[in-house]
Design a protein around this nucleic acid. Sequence first.
DNA 1: GTTAGGG
DNA 2: CCCTAAC
Length: 606
Amino acid sequence: MVFKRKLDCVSVAFDYPNVPRAPRSCRRKVLNKGTDDDDAKMCAMDLLASLAGKILEEGQSSSASSNAFFEVNNHEVKQEDHYKPLKSESSDQGNSVSRPPYEENTNDKCVVNSFSFPDNDEGVLERTPMSDHHKKIHGEIGGGHGNAGSEQGVATTHGLEDGGGLTTNTCHLEDKTALGVQFPKPVCVDMTIPNGSLARHGNHTNLARDDDEKLFSYRKCSNKFMSYRIRKSKYRKQVPKDYGHYRSVDVGVKVLHRKRKSCYGYNGWLRETKTIYKRRRSPDRSSVVTSDGGLSNASVSKLHEKRGSVKLSIKSFRIPELFIEVPETATVGSLKRTVMEAVSVLLSGGIRVGVLVHGKKVRDDKRTLSQTGISCEENLTNLGFTLEPGLSKVPIPLCSEDPVVVVPPPTEPTSLCERSAASPTLDSGIPHADDVIMDNNNLELVPYQSEISIDEPSSDSRALVPLPALEEVKALAIVPLNQKPKRTELAQRRTRRPFSVTEVEALVQAVEELGTGRWRDVKLRAFENADHRTYVDLKDKWKTLVHTASISPQQRRGEPVPQELLDRVLRAYGYWSQHQGKHHARGAPKDADTNRGGALESGVSV
DNA sequence: GTTAGGG
DNA sequence: CCCTAAC
């Protein structure tokens, strides 16, 4: 029998309400020190910086005047096999073992696929290679710059939105990234910060106002996931899972963003970001005309051409995909903060920009735009940008076709997500949770096989980023490895998840039967399906339980544990302290089942 | 990979 | 919960 092993969740799970403390790991904070001096990148970086600032402002002002809203695509995943009922036959104490709390795991995992920015002012990138003047720096965040090229206002560009310049792209089949077992109900989220209008999508399944009078629109999305094999948590800290992988899809950078918290406050982050990006302003004086990043649906549109210069309007930037995990009971506010933090962390980690012409990445930073063909009117419409994790060392060969974040003006702007949602047949493509679990012992994040093959042959993404699936696989597999060398700041403490009484009950029960030296068995026995509980966790919990039981009730904190349980803890503790190993031979899980009563009781009675 | 124990 | 030593 193959036991499921802990599957470390790759997700962003900030539990603000429950985790007041700051991560101890505010140590390593290394920002990307890339020295890329590419103009385009710089421009984009500046733009990003400003956009990030904008986001932060949005996020910080509790006034929350922003108009941000999500589009959540709720994936309905079968859960039947995700959790295995706790064995109860072993209970000889008459207490029917209730289903462990991990079965209450109703956390939704969210996948943030896109993040667009306000459209109030169009983000205009002006490249004037021969020019020597800076028009404007992005310090004027929010300032209403002249909106040159208003004629192709985002809203009209794709005709998808009701004038809101909203991103419609959401879930792309190829982007469904989820750990099936960990994601009972994965949610694909598309984030957009519109300029005050609402997107209209056909797949809304829910619509609710959040506490800031903004709208959340939920809609179904295809149950299509990519699964990854992830190594156990033991080496989690050494593994830069944050940039677990990214692939070439029109959605853009794929980032498996593991739970973590920014070591910096938003202010600090903002400061740092600005500083850095300013410092790295393009040496050859390209300028960012507006900083507000009026971004909408993924595209780059040509504003107009002046002689010798190129003006671009970047309609949208997608952030690398983020996984977010929040309990259903979480507040909208906490969700916001979670997303905010995720985005902040992501951006603070550095982002690189790639340039694509006709879907092909232009690697030579030395080439001029005209040499690249970007100056041509025709090509300009086929100009795209990519966002990539700002790693100083990004594997070159396999990442050649980096994820597209800003893609050429889509001729067919319908989001893949919508298509996905409309393709129920694809739902069957979800890898079964068990499949994922069975072999998640690899360090790399490897796309689940079935995923690749399910790619929609004619999806936009393929057209936009012609990258063979195989290549993607390689890239995915290699990225984490190459990044391994000290992606320091990524290490992050897991979110604290206090044991519930039910869990304690299950733990006590198991320890009573198995003893205190067999945590793996305890895990397998009582918490096999609680992927977030490692045997070390159980051991630690037991430790605290023993301590808790030893102190006066007044000194105890947290959710009170029934005295009855604490008594059992002490009893078991005392027993197993005296019978170390004596019953190990017969204490094997299978034996314990027949033990009817458990080692503790039978042992004591003897 | 597991345990055990300190942090 | 994290980190490590020890096995």
